Amino acid sequence: MTHSGSFRLKLYEHFDMGGSMMELTDDCSNLMNRFRMSNFNSCDVEGHWLVYEHPHYRGRHYYLRPGQYSSFSDWSGFNSRMGSIRRLADL
């Protein structure tokens, strides 16, 4: 079940929504291939997402609720590495 228009994830290179911004509205199995970056220190979230440390939805994962996260520690991340991201459409 997909909720069109309700998923948007803005990933920022630096803390407090600073630096380069990359935007997603759909799943991404490899952020490095898509954006040439894998370290994101803050984000602005619409919808519910799972963030994985490694590509192809592997490794530690973190649940992101709607809202702003000014630092990776706000989502209980050990570091700023993100390898892949998946929408949670069935909540």
Results as ranks from 00 to 15, higher is better:
residue 48 H to G: 06
residue 61 H to F: 12
residue 41 N to K: 09
residue 43 C to H: 02
residue 69 Y to V: 02
residue 46 E to P: 01
residue 71 S to H: 11
residue 56 H to D: 15
residue 62 Y to C: 00
residue 56 H to Y: 10
residue 64 L to M: 15
residue 51 V to C: 03
residue 47 G to H: 07
residue 54 H to R: 06
residue 48 H to T: 13
residue 51 V to N: 01
residue 44 D to L: 09
residue 49 W to H: 02
residue 59 G to F: 02
residue 71 S to G: 08
residue 69 Y to A: 05
residue 41 N to F: 06
residue 45 V to Q: 02
residue 57 Y to Q: 09
residue 49 W to K: 00
residue 56 H to G: 07
residue 56 H to E: 13
residue 53 E to I: 07
residue 66 P to W: 11
residue 63 Y to V: 10
residue 47 G to S: 14
residue 49 W to G: 04
residue 47 G to P: 14
residue 48 H to S: 11
residue 58 R to I: 04
residue 70 S to D: 09
residue 55 P to H: 03
residue 66 P to T: 12
residue 64 L to N: 06
residue 41 N to E: 11
residue 53 E to A: 10
residue 51 V to Y: 01
residue 41 N to A: 11
residue 42 S to F: 01
residue 45 V to T: 05
residue 47 G to N: 14
residue 57 Y to T: 06
residue 42 S to D: 08
residue 43 C to R: 00
residue 52 Y to I: 08
residue 54 H to L: 10
residue 67 G to E: 06
residue 65 R to C: 11
residue 66 P to Q: 15
residue 44 D to F: 02
residue 66 P to H: 13
residue 50 L to T: 12
residue 54 H to S: 08
residue 50 L to V: 13
residue 60 R to I: 07
residue 57 Y to K: 03
residue 50 L to W: 15
residue 62 Y to A: 04
residue 58 R to F: 02
residue 65 R to T: 09
residue 62 Y to K: 01
residue 44 D to T: 06
residue 51 V to G: 00
residue 50 L to C: 13
residue 59 G to W: 01
residue 64 L to I: 10
residue 71 S to Y: 01
residue 60 R to A: 14
residue 49 W to T: 03
residue 40 F to V: 02
residue 50 L to I: 15
residue 62 Y to F: 15
residue 48 H to D: 15
residue 68 Q to Y: 04
residue 58 R to Q: 14
residue 41 N to G: 01
residue 46 E to R: 12
residue 68 Q to R: 10
residue 45 V to G: 04
residue 69 Y to R: 00
residue 48 H to V: 15
residue 49 W to L: 04
residue 68 Q to A: 07
residue 63 Y to S: 09
residue 71 S to Q: 00
residue 67 G to D: 05
residue 51 V to E: 03
residue 64 L to E: 10
residue 54 H to A: 06
residue 40 F to H: 00
residue 47 G to C: 12
residue 46 E to M: 15
residue 42 S to L: 05
residue 61 H to Y: 13
residue 58 R to L: 10
residue 63 Y to A: 11
residue 71 S to I: 00
residue 58 R to E: 13
residue 68 Q to E: 14
residue 64 L to T: 10
residue 61 H to I: 05
residue 60 R to N: 15
residue 50 L to M: 14
residue 62 Y to Q: 00
residue 56 H to F: 11
residue 54 H to P: 04
residue 45 V to A: 05
residue 64 L to K: 04
residue 67 G to S: 07
residue 59 G to T: 02
residue 55 P to W: 03
residue 48 H to N: 14
residue 52 Y to K: 05
residue 52 Y to W: 08
residue 53 E to T: 12
residue 63 Y to T: 09
residue 63 Y to G: 04
residue 65 R to Q: 13
residue 42 S to M: 07
residue 66 P to D: 12
residue 71 S to P: 03
residue 45 V to E: 00
residue 71 S to N: 13
residue 64 L to D: 08
residue 69 Y to M: 06
residue 63 Y to H: 13
residue 61 H to P: 02
residue 62 Y to M: 05
residue 48 H to P: 06
residue 66 P to L: 12
residue 61 H to C: 14
residue 69 Y to P: 01
residue 52 Y to F: 15
residue 59 G to L: 03
residue 66 P to R: 12
residue 63 Y to R: 12
